[in-house]
Every structure is written in C-alpha cells, then in structure tokens.
Simulated scan of single mutants.
Amino acid sequence: MAELLEKAKNYVAEKVTNMPKPEASVTDVDFKRVSRDSVEYLAKVSVQNPYSTSIPICEIKYSLKSAGREIAAGTIPDPGSLKASDTTMLDVPVKVPHSILLSLAKDIGADWDIDYQLDIGLVIDLPVIGNFTIPLSQKGEIKLPTLTDMFA
C-alpha cells in the first residue's frame, strides 16, 4: 500500500512540475512624472497566461536599486488578474524621493541618468499549486527629468 501511495505522489509531483506556468518580462522602465516630493517611474511588465481561465494576481512586490543601494521599494496589493490565454500588460509605478536622487549625485554625473536594477516579484494564485511568485529582474539606465519635463 505504501508503495502505491509513493507512486501516486510521484506521479502528481511530476505532473505539477511539468505544468505550463505563466511567464513574465519587464518590457520598459521610463520616466512618468515629477511631484513635489518624488520622481515617479513606470515599469511595464508583460505576463503571458497559458491557461484558459483568468488567474488572480495577489500582489506585485518591487525593489529599485542604484549604486548598490535600495532607492525605492513597495507592494501593490491586488492589482487585478491575468487574462485567459492571453498576454496582460501590468503597470508598476515606482516613486523615488528627491532626497535619494540627490544622494546619488556621483552616479548621475554628466550623463544625467541613473544606473539601476529593478527586481519585481509577481505573486499569482495558481489553481492546485497555490501562490506562485514569478521573479523578474532588469538592469539599465533611467534618464532623470529635465526642467522641460517638470513644466511640460
């Protein structure tokens, strides 16, 4: 009997492991707007759902790092769901306080941009499996706003 249960357990584990899972990628990180206390950037995330039913997104966690330091982090609770058998575009707004940008003056230098690493954890609720986190990471450069951006 124990052998039969072990075979059944292995069969189920193998099927769950080989199930298709949603895939995601960061498609763009760009300047959005300037406010009195912060600069807001917008990360666009493309998520492909292989299932014929929509999947709820539990939360999106993000962390923006520059020069080896975390300059922004947060969580977006309950951002909606993934469309069935389709690609869903998600917007992840990231606010960076002005005080932190000033402390990055060395990195900003003459080219007026910030070298960054954006880490995103997309937590979705898969049937049978439960909560599943899709980890994403992207490195690049973000342009800082100019005076024309602030008054446009």
Rank of each mutant, 00 (worst) to 15 (best):
D28V: 01
L64Q: 04
S46Q: 15
K44G: 01
V29M: 15
P50S: 07
A24V: 09
G74Q: 09
S54E: 11
I55C: 07
S46Y: 05
I76F: 08
Y11S: 11
P20W: 01
M19P: 00
F31I: 01
P77D: 10
S52V: 06
G80H: 02
K65M: 13
E23F: 08
E14V: 02
S35D: 04
S63W: 00
E14D: 14
S46A: 15
V29K: 02
P77L: 10
M19T: 12
K83F: 09
N18R: 14
V12N: 06
P20I: 00
M89W: 04
S38E: 08
E40Y: 02
M89R: 12
A43H: 03
S81E: 13
K32D: 09
L42M: 15
I71C: 09
S85F: 10
E23Q: 15
P20V: 05
N49D: 13
K83Y: 10
K61D: 08
A73K: 14
L64R: 06
D86A: 15
A72M: 08
V39N: 01
L64H: 04
T75P: 01
T53C: 04
V29H: 01
C58W: 05
K61I: 04
L90D: 00
T53F: 15
P50R: 08
N49A: 07
T88E: 08
K32N: 09
V47S: 10
R69H: 10
V34E: 02
K15A: 13
P79V: 02
V16T: 10
A73H: 11
P79I: 03
A13V: 04
V39F: 01
P79H: 03
P79E: 04
D78M: 13
D78I: 08
G80P: 07
K44W: 03
Y51H: 13
I71M: 10
N10L: 14
V29T: 11
N18G: 09
A24T: 05
P22L: 08
A13F: 04
Y11C: 03
T88C: 09
E14S: 14
E59P: 01
P56G: 07
N49T: 06
M19N: 05
